[in-house]
Design a protein around this nucleic acid. Structure first.
Length: 593
DNA sequence: GCCGTTTTCGGCCCGACTGTTTTCAGTCG
């Protein structure tokens, strides 16, 4: 237990505490303070180096180098990482002891309304909220009404429907922690995260881990004592189950080397995919389970083992091409594997550029140059700078005058980097994330759009137009001769907001007709397009782009989620325009320069 | 609470939309 008390605090945890403080301060109506906390929370969440470590190694003064951190927030962070608590925060919590995170997850509920609900109706949890809403007590409150109560009930239903599932990105962070913890243990031959995580589903119920080792006891001991384990449900000889600090459950199983492939396949699923594999085995007079592929022998419990060490040999013995985990969802992959018609999926190393990034010209937190440097570090050849436009006032969106200025800066940066690296090394592309206005017109004039390399268009307002109006609006934007890419086409936020009502098959048809690229926004709360829409687009020959939507250098890492999503949509390298060189990619866009 | 080619105070990304109102507060982006 000793090392659990002094365990390091992650940036996410610090950021969450600070943003909760901001919400509590909103309740008290103090001006500007909340913004100060939110600003720091965002900066910390986007940092790649650990704030905890920064403090431990360089002291409190180093904390001041984080943008937005002054004397008092530095003190708070210090207290938080050294004691695990923050008295100031505890005080605020005590005053309004509500489950902020779940209540704010309800669309339309913010700190002010939560405060009223607590003070008038003692609402602390989602269950309390549902009870008073159903009892018709909310509509009687001042400032609320019939409609608010209805919307709250709808919001509760949506929050509940996420049913304890976690975003792939959050699961990935936890998985990496576990991997780091286990890496140090001697006797681990291999370590895989299996289940829906390995299939890269957009949300994950729990983290299933498969370890090959001859020393299962050591593994069990080490796993259940990892610093980010909050509680242990079960600890056996070959299987343990725990709850992690972040709230996700994780199961770990140890298998022997000879069963590795069979176990990998079995625990990766999907369940229906496994059933289909077992049926094929039975047709071939074989038996498949988590220990291997066996000759069925009616007299004995198990016959001779035919395969099991690797997944590849199991698929081969069943007469199937290897099926990548992302496709194991019973979407026709078995037939395709039988007929040797599986697509050659885009690979995790195939992206050469990123076509949506924001900078400190609007709501990003790094300069164009810093974003470019990080992209270079990650092996990309180009990025498009696509800051917001003026309609998105909150981001200080660019108008025609400022975007012209930005273009000049990009020209300068490209020119100086040409001198440093030689021509054709890395290219910063001029772009925009141009708002689609109510009527489908765009937030920048055509003569500006014409000068940009990459024009992304997207919806950030009026999410509740009718399906017909929303579709019409987006289609009109796509028909603009300069609109190259439709960014995050459905606007959904997983667990937070439904996609807006829009006819995706019409959008895909219009994309095809107008040569508009559809984006796969890789942010793990967006993953927009969804896998099924990617597949529809690919089938119709519509081109896609996989973008990070990065607002900070560390956020390029989400690209892997976008690639995963594209793979789940059966996309190949050729379907994705930013797998090509900058020149080739640009030639594929509408203006085709 | 933070910050400064506007340094020790006085500003702080702010407009659109919704549902409540009957002139506005809260939320979202």
């Amino acid at each position: 237990m000793g090392d659990k008390l002094s365990r390091h605090m992650t940036n996410q945890e610090i950021a969450k505490t600070l943003s909760n403080i901001a919400e509590y301060l909103e309740m008290t109506d103090v001006p500007f303070k909340p913004r100060a906390y939110v600003r720091v929370a965002e900066a910390i969440a986007a940092m790649s180096e650990s704030v905890d470590r920064l403090y431990r190694e360089k002291g409190a003064s180093a904390l001041r180098s984080i943008p937005g951190v002054g004397a008092s927030i530095a003190e708070h962070i210090k207290e938080l990482v050294t004691t695990g608590h923050l008295a100031y925060y505890d005080q605020l919590k005590k005053k309004t002891p509500v489950d902020l995170e779940t209540l704010t997850a309800v669309e339309g509920l913010g700190p002010k309304k939560i405060k009223v609900l607590y003070e008038k109706l003692r609402v602390r949890t989602l269950a309390d909220l549902e009870r008073v809403a159903k009892a018709g007590k909310i509509k009687k409150l001042e400032g609320f009404g019939e409609k608010s109560e209805e919307n709250i009930l709808k919001g509760i239903a949506f929050v509940k429907s996420s049913g304890g599932r976690f975003l792939l990105g959050d699961a990935m962070r936890e998985a990496k922690q576990i991997e780091l913890g286990l890496q140090k243990i001697p006797g681990i031959h291999s370590f895989d995260i299996v289940g829906s995580f390995r299939r890269r589903k957009e949300t994950i119920g729990d983290i299933d881990i498969l370890v090959v080792s001859d020393r299962p006891h050591v593994i069990m001991e080490a796993f259940t004592n990892l610093p980010n384990v909050a509680r242990v449900y079960a600890k056996g000889d070959t299987k343990s189950m725990v709850r992690l600090q972040g709230g996700i459950d994780a199961d770990l199983r140890v298998v022997p080397q000879e069963s590795y492939g069979a176990a990998l396949s079995y625990f990766t699923g999907s369940k229906d995919h496994n059933i289909a594999l077992r049926k094929i085995a039975i047709e071939k007079k074989l038996k498949l389970n988590e220990y291997g592929l066996f000759a069925s022998d009616k007299r004995k419990a198990t016959g001779k083992m035919i395969a099991g060490k690797t997944e590849e040999e199991i698929y081969a013995k069943l007469g199937l091409d290897f099926i990548p985990p992302e496709l194991r969802e019973m979407g026709g992959e078995i037939e395709a594997a039988k007929n040797h018609t599986l697509p050659k999926l885009i690979g995790y190393e195939d992206l050469r550029g990123d076509l949506q990034t924001q900078t400190n010209w609007t709501d990003g937190n790094a300069s164009i140059e810093e974003m470019a440097k990080e992209a270079i570090k990650r092996g990309l050849e180009y990025i498009a700078i696509t800051d917001h436009t003026k309609r998105l006032a909150m981001t200080h969106g660019l108008d025609a005058r400022r975007i012209v200025e930005q273009m000049k800066e990009i020209d300068n940066l490209n020119a100086t980097s040409d001198k440093r690296h030689g021509k054709g090394k890395f290219r910063i592309l001029k772009g925009t994330e141009c708002d689609i206005l109510r009527d489908g017109s765009l937030d920048l004039p055509d003569e500006i759009l014409r000068q940009l390399d990459v024009v992304g268009v997207s919806v950030h307002s009026l999410f509740n137009l009718s399906r017909e109006d929303q579709t019409k609006r987006i289609v009109r934007a796509m028909r603009n001769p300069h609109a190259d890419i439709l960014f995050h086409p459905t606007g959904r936020l997983i667990h937070k907001r439904e996609p807006y009502a829009v006819d995706m098959s019409e959008i895909i048809d219009v994309a095809r007709e107008t040569n508009t690229v559809l984006e796969v926004d890789a942010l793990s709360e967006r993953l927009d397009l969804k896998d099924e829409h990617i597949r529809m687009a690919v089938q119709k020959g519509v081109k896609l782009a996989i973008d990070s939507d990065a607002h900070a250098p560390s956020q390029f890492s989400v690209l892997e989620f976008g690639i995963a999503q594209a793979r789940r949509g059966w996309a190949t390298r050729e379907d994705i325009i930013n797998t090509f060189s900058a020149e080739k990619m640009l030639s594929m866009l509408k203006d085709g320069r």
